[in-house]
Lab assay of single mutants.
Amino acid sequence: TYTWNTKEEAKQAFKELLKEKRVPSNASWEQAMKMIINDPRYSALAKLSEKKQAFNAYKVQTE
């Protein structure tokens, strides 16, 4: 089980997950979700809006 003390740690864990699963920077949210949804870190960020925000930040960083 994973635990995160801060929102920032949770966001980092979520981005690490995207990186580890090699989600391409041109992937849509739907494509990315299919690649990461079974990992416990997918739940790091509770709100869908937070997940999408972190995903978009990840995409910008990896382009």
Rank of each mutant, 00 (worst) to 15 (best):
K59P: 03
T1P: 15
T3G: 08
E20W: 04
S49K: 08
T3I: 14
P40M: 08
Y58S: 03
S25R: 14
M35F: 07
K11F: 15
T6Y: 03
A10P: 03
L45M: 05
K19Y: 14
P24L: 04
A57I: 07
L18I: 05
K59T: 08
I37K: 13
K51T: 02
S43F: 14
A44I: 04
A13F: 04
A32K: 00
F14G: 00
S43R: 09
L17M: 11
S43G: 13
E30D: 09
L17G: 01
E30K: 08
A27L: 08
T1F: 12
Q12P: 00
V60Q: 14
A10L: 04
K19D: 12
K15G: 15
L18C: 06
T6K: 02
K52G: 03
W29M: 03
K15R: 14
W29P: 01
V60F: 12
L17S: 03
A46T: 14
N26I: 07
E63C: 15
E8A: 11
T1C: 15
Y2I: 15
Q53R: 11
N56H: 13
A54G: 03
I36M: 04
I36C: 06
V23L: 05
D39R: 00
L48D: 08
F55V: 03
W4T: 06
R41D: 01
P24R: 05
A57C: 14
M33Y: 09
A27G: 05
K47Y: 07
Q12A: 11
L45Q: 01
K51M: 06
A32M: 02
S49E: 12
Q61M: 10
L18Y: 00
P40L: 09
E16T: 09
M35T: 06
Y42H: 02
N38R: 09
Q12T: 11
E8M: 06
K19Q: 14
E63L: 09
E50H: 05
A32E: 00
K34E: 13
P24C: 06
F55S: 01
Q31K: 06
S25F: 13
F55W: 10
F55G: 01
V60I: 13
S49N: 06
P24E: 04
K15N: 15
K7P: 15
A44T: 03
S49F: 04
K47F: 09
L17Y: 01
S43Y: 13
M33V: 11
T62H: 13
D39E: 04
E16P: 00
